[in-house]
Nucleic acid binder design. Structure first.
Length: 381
RNA sequence: GGGUGGUUUCCCGAGUGGCCAAAGGGGACAGACUGUAAAUCUGCUGCAUCUUGCUUCGAUGGUUCGAAUCCAUCACCACCCA
């Protein structure tokens, strides 16, 4: 397995690292931009992604499997070629869909039977199937196939689920090694990240973290957070769990989150994040700024000549006013959504740049506290 | 000039004697969304001293215990015949 992660410096528990991949080096902490079906929703192109300094794109195994099909993408030459993105791509395993498509599935030891949300046909996905699909896609980093239990699941269920996810992880590792050694593999250097689970039960989390750490994977994710528990519970679980994951490997907090969640995650030793918020909220009219979040659909912006945020270098702020974007959103013109998605992703990507500088300067705690306070104050917007 | 149909709360539009402050859309206003079944979903939209009271359904007058709903007159709109 790879020795590709380099820890550049630390500040408290915060890590400043670099992950070498066949598709380039990722500077961490890093926010991955979510492109579930091979595109960032909101008509964002890969050219756009270069303009807003995106490092890593995240795509989804289940969604690409049911449409358009991973075998077809493999025949095309892999996902990188297909979507014309030569930077790193992380593929989620479909594990989250085990959780979010709960009404359409049935879980067993071998894997999960889904009903396709597209046409209702039956699909079976287990660790081997998920690894096969991710290998066909040829992503840079594959995620282990896991179950993400609900934050309301009882202790007994979570214990059994985590034990099964642990057994699935061993099967993922075996299958990936096999796939990477095949002659026609799209990306023979595909990496594998394992996933820690355990809902809000810290002892289950710690036991699981210790166990999966021994598997010497390329990286380790904390999954199953931000699914209904409080922020305090989430931060507490990170406090207790992250120290039990290998520090010399990249860590990834899956599906998180708000700018504040990310700042707190970095403080607790997380390298990678991803979240639908900047793109989805952009489509829904929300813009992130250093002074808080604003809803551009609100009438108060109808004659506001200012850009979303003064000094922002994104395509929206460089050329357009709040008033014009408000109008575009009201008129349901796609450009309105597109500009907000670009602004928000640019905001997140650049927040990560600021975070890396603060860790390098060994001033992270003060930086994070001030960043969060400023966003909460919501002044001048 | 004659005939017929119509005028409902921001707009369209249902309602033909009490359960109507008035269905349903749209718009407006606000909120939610955390490994995206999400350009989606939710709330709200006469006034007030808001678990109750008041004023609304073109205008005025009438019938009735009770009218957006029935009658009369007037105003305006649409179409048809001259």
């Amino acid at each position: 397995m790879s020795k590709n992660y380099r820890l550049i410096t630390t500040d408290g528990r915060a890590k400043r690292g670099a992950l070498e991949t066949v598709h380039g080096t990722v500077q961490t902490p890093c926010f991955m931009n979510v492109a579930t079906v091979g595109a960032i929703k909101g008509a964002v192109s890969t050219d756009d992604l270069h303009c807003i300094d995106t490092q890593v794109v995240l795509s989804n195994t289940y969604h690409l499997h049911v449409r358009t099909g991973d075998e077809l993408i493999k025949r095309y030459g892999g996902l990188h070629k297909f979507m014309n993105w030569d930077g790193p791509i992380l593929t989620d395993s479909g594990g989250f869909q085990v959780f979010s498509l709960a009404t359409l599935r049935h879980i067993k030891e071998e894997g999960v039977t889904f009903r396709s949300h597209i046409d209702g046909h039956k699909i079976f996905m287990g660790p081997e199937e998920s690894m096969q699909i991710q290998s066909n896609l040829g992503s840079t980093i594959a995620m282990a196939f896991d179950e993400c239990p609900s934050s309301r699941a009882d202790r007994d269920y979570v214990e059994k689920s985590v034990a099964r996810t642990e057994r699935w992880l061993v099967r993922c590792k075996t299958k990936m090694a096999e796939l990477n050694s095949l002659p026609d593999t799209v990306n023979p250097h595909q990496m594998l990240f394992g996933i820690n689970q355990g809902a809000v039960f810290e002892d289950i989390r710690i036991k699981n973290a210790d166990a999966i750490s021994k598997l010497d994977l390329d990286g380790y994710a904390v999954g199953g957070l931000a699914v209904g528990e409080t922020h305090e519970e989430m931060y507490h679980i990170l406090d207790e769990t992250v120290p039990h994951l290998p520090q010399e490997k990249p860590t990834y907090l899956m599906g998180v989150g708000t700018p504040e969640n990310i700042l707190e995650g970095v403080r607790r030793g997380i390298d990678f994040f991803d979240c639908v918020y900047p793109s989805r909220n952009g489509r829904h009219g929300h813009a992130y700024t250093h002074h808080g979040k604003m809803n551009l659909l609100n009438a108060r912006y109808e004659l506001d000549h200012r850009p979303i945020e003064e000094g922002c270098n994104c395509p929206a702020c460089r050329s357009y006013s709040r008033a014009y974007i408000h109008h575009l959103l009201k008129a349901k013109e796609m450009l309105g959504m597109r500009l907000l998605v670009l602004h928000n992703l640019n905001f997140y990507n650049h927040m990560m740049t600021e975070i890396r500088s603060a860790i390098e300067a060994h001033d992270y705690d003060a930086f994070a506290d001030e960043f969060i306070a400023k966003m909460k104050a919501g002044e001048d917007i």
